[in-house]
């Protein structure tokens, strides 16, 4: 199947909360202040990251009330562990999203039997994404990510969506896509490598 968006060369190094070094530095500084008990600084961290965090969690758990719960747990964890954030291991938003995703996945897996998980995954239609889009840089970043996703093969994209948004294990992904076990694992890895290389290539 053809990508939804025509990939174009990464002609500009657009920025966003995920990639802008200034923004990363600002968030890291706010997080350090949070670690010292500065609630106002933490509120700014929340404001800068909550749309991505809540959006991701909502995608995975689907139920808004549960998404709010998971997001709240996640931010409490961020507050409590702010001093342990290590900037050499990635960005603040990356760290928070990692925590949030893990919690969201735990939540859907523990509720697995109670939920109908055979619904479609919204990333398949990237144009229909809900997008806060208040800020130009956020729009640009979203556009850029969509272009990157458009670079993936159909199987890579489906596998990543099922794993990341569906909360399925690679074993389950293999079953859902009807591909051999080892192949799902490989598609996840080579798909992410392709995304990574796209992002890195465009920013240098």
């Amino acid at each position: 199947m053809a990508p939804h968006l025509t990939p174009v060369p990464a002609e500009r190094s657009s920025s966003g909360t995920g990639s802008d070094p200034d923004e990363q530095g600002r968030l890291a500084a706010l997080l350090r202040r949070s670690a010292r008990g500065d609630e106002a600084a933490f509120a700014q961290v929340y404001d800068a990251t909550s749309a991505q965090v809540y959006g991701l969690v909502l995608r995975v758990v689907r139920d808004p009330a549960q998404a709010a719960e998971v997001a709240q747990e996640c931010y409490l964890q961020v507050w409590q562990n702010a001093s342990r954030f290590d900037s050499s291991r990635g960005s603040v938003i990356g760290w928070i999203l990692t925590l949030a995703h893990r919690r969201a996945v735990d939540r859907v897996r523990s509720a697995q039997s109670a939920t109908d998980r055979d619904q479609k995954f919204a990333l398949r239609e990237p144009r229909e994404e809900i997008d806060t889009g208040d800020v130009v840089v956020e729009r640009m970043e979203a556009e850029r990510v969509r272009r990157a996703l458009g670079k993936l093969t159909e199987v890579q994209r489906q596998a990543i969506e099922l794993a990341y948004l569906g909360g399925y294990t690679h074993t389950e992904v293999a079953g859902l896509l009807d591909i051999p076990l080892g192949t799902a694992k490989t598609r996840l890895r080579d798909g992410l490598i392709r995304l990574r290389d796209f992002f890195e290539g465009g920013e240098r």
């Binding site: 966003g16 909360t17 995920g18 990639s19 909550s50 749309a51 991505q52 965090v53 809540y54 959006g55 991701l56 909502l58 995608r59 709010a68 997001a71 990635g90 960005s91 938003i93 990356g94 999203l97 990692t98 919204a122 990333l123 990237p126 994404e129 809900i130 997008d131 806060t132 956020e138 970043e141 979203a142 850029r144 990510v145 969509r146 990157a148 996703l149 990341y164 992410l192 995304l195 992002f199």
Partner: peptide
């Protein structure tokens, strides 16, 4: 992976 949620941001 950390870049992907940019497309699904939703105001909480």
């Amino acid at each position: 992976v950390a870049r992907m949620p940019a497309v699904s941001a939703v105001a909480p």
